[in-house]
Design a protein around this nucleic acid. Structure first.
Ligand SMILES: [Mn+2]
Ligand SMILES: [Mn+2]
Ligand SMILES: [Mn+2]
Ligand SMILES: [Mn+2]
Lengths: 217, 217
DNA sequence: ATAAATTTTTAGATAAGTCTAAATTAAAAA
DNA sequence: TTTTTAATTTAGACTTATCTAAAAATTTAT
């Protein structure tokens, strides 16, 4: 049995491993968890002792098979609950993250699996992130970052990488919602901003926005 | 913001106050929370300092208005989640208590109220216990303990006072489920057991069972 | 290759919640 | 009304998760 804190660390380590494809280092993890580096060191030692990850002093940490399984189980719960909140309880995609942070720690395999069935085994959550199935498997839909597109390219917006409510509210305000067809109208080299078209309306978005939007082309 | 532990104490104090109509004493509370009396004393001091109850050394504790409000909010969540698990996720009434013990601590008023609406504002949980509404009000259905009935009296089983899975499984096995029509066929004075009839089948139940069954007559 | 800067770890402290054992107070029995 | 028993509180310790400040190791720059 793991504590909420342990589960949060493991989930974040998993996420950073996926993103950077390297061992996770202390400072970055501290920043993500919103804690201090010294606390991270303590926790990494503890998780290593519990045989959930490999930890080498000054070198960083890497989940082992057991740790990865835990991470996928927590991610599965997080995304199923987010889906539940949006699909069944009238939440918008910018309101669910914080609550799912709590719900992801509820311990009951039956609950998770019944919830999955109740939602008709959804493949992605409200942010387009894939939901691992009961065995930890998930389909990796091939998506392309909007920054990779050229002028006149278009695609369907299917996944957002920044889950913060601020960012999601900005997207909603500008009609950039999952499923929207986006076309690149113009690109500005000096600041990497681009002009896009959605539903025949055109507007500019900055590099910071672009890098968090993923499309199916 | 209260911790899970604080909420558990407050909920249990509320429940004992309702049952015994007196200040709650340390040892009983310790037994219910499954902890030691010394831990209870520490917690009572803390909750008194947080202005959630009145605590007098050696005299016991009593929730104030603020504490009662917290208790009702936790009870509301507990019973709504139990209802959700049974109504929507195919759980049986003996499987939900432990999970609701966790879910009752999720912090989000919107979640609680949306869940309430999603379930069509249920009045009672799967054990027949009343669910407080958003303002903490609940209908007190007038029920009578089975032990109060005489031979040939009958009523509808609407509430069970012992929520343990062992007891609930026993009831299920004997067709004693919420809504069942129960008739008292015979009473034994020497051990206070009785013979009841449900669906034309008769069988004996002991005093320990009887005192936890409440009927509408 | 050495010095400076950065990252990471260690040492020691704190708060919450729990425990055991001892002391104190209250209640029951003699 | 003493004495005995039971209930409750206090004292001191432990665990988990966190922090600050200082030390150590690693990386980067000169
Ligand atoms: Mn979390
Ligand atoms: Mn998500
Ligand atoms: Mn609980
Ligand atoms: Mn119940």
């Amino acid at each position: 049995m793991l504590t909420n804190s342990e589960e949060n660390y493991i989930k974040e380590i998993y996420s950073l491993e996926q993103k950077h494809q390297t061992d996770v280092n202390t400072n970055l993890l501290a920043e993500k968890i919103e804690t201090k580096a010294s606390s991270v060191t303590d926790m990494l030692k503890k998780l290593a002792k519990k045989d959930l990850l490999i930890y080498q002093k000054y070198k960083g940490a890497k989940l082992n098979t057991k740790g990865e399984k835990v991470a996928l189980a927590v991610v599965r719960k997080h995304r199923l609950w987010e889906t539940f909140l949006v699909e069944k309880l009238n939440f918008s995609w910018d309101e669910v993250h914080e609550i799912a942070e709590q719900l992801e720690h509820i311990q009951s395999e039956k609950l998770t699996n019944e919830l999955d069935a109740f939602l008709n085994f959804p493949k992605v959550d409200p942010h387009g992130d894939p939901i691992p199935d009961v065995n930890g498997n998930f389909a990796t839909i091939k998506t392309v970052c909007l920054s990779k597109l050229n002028i006149d390219d278009e695609g369907v917006f299917v996944e957002v990488k920044d889950d913060s409510d601020k960012f999601l509210k900005y997207l909603t305000k500008n009609n950039i919602t999952i499923g929207a067809k986006i076309k690149v109208v113009d690109k500005e080299d000096f600041d990497n901003s681009i002009k896009i078209e959605i539903d025949k309306k055109q507007f500019n978005i900055s590099e910071n926005v672009i890098k968090n939007l993923y499309l199916k082309i």
